[in-house]
Amino acid sequence: MTDSFGQVNFQRGVASVVVLSLLKQADMYGYQLVQEMERQSLGALSMQEGALYPVLYKLQDAGYVSSEKVLVGKRMTRVYYHLEPEGEQYLSRLLADYRAVVDGVLRIAEGVDPWKK
């Protein structure tokens, strides 16, 4: 997997937004989150599974996400993550901030100066 500017910066800012948004769709386990991230973003976003767990831990610690161990097969357990109601409210706030930031960046990048007459 090659690192691109988008992928590196994604990992450093919007991981929480993406993870919470995916969990809003359905309960998912770690690798499933990574796969869905790449699939739904059409390859624009990707994250290695190991880097996902610090994000999930922080969200769990804050009470936005909960986890449940589910028996898979004979002896293996898999941890599924679930979005809590507080997490859904947090996601709304995060998305509003994220839209404002992206809007601001695009305005600057595209040379749209709101103060120019």
């Binding site: 990992q11 929480s16 290695q48 190991g50 880097a51 767990y53 994000v55 831990y57």
Partner: peptide, 18 residues
Amino acid sequence: QTHFGTPESVAAMCMETT
């Protein structure tokens, strides 16, 4: 490491989210 990321990248994400 290809699948899970290097130990450094895991640690970096931990630092980023702290």
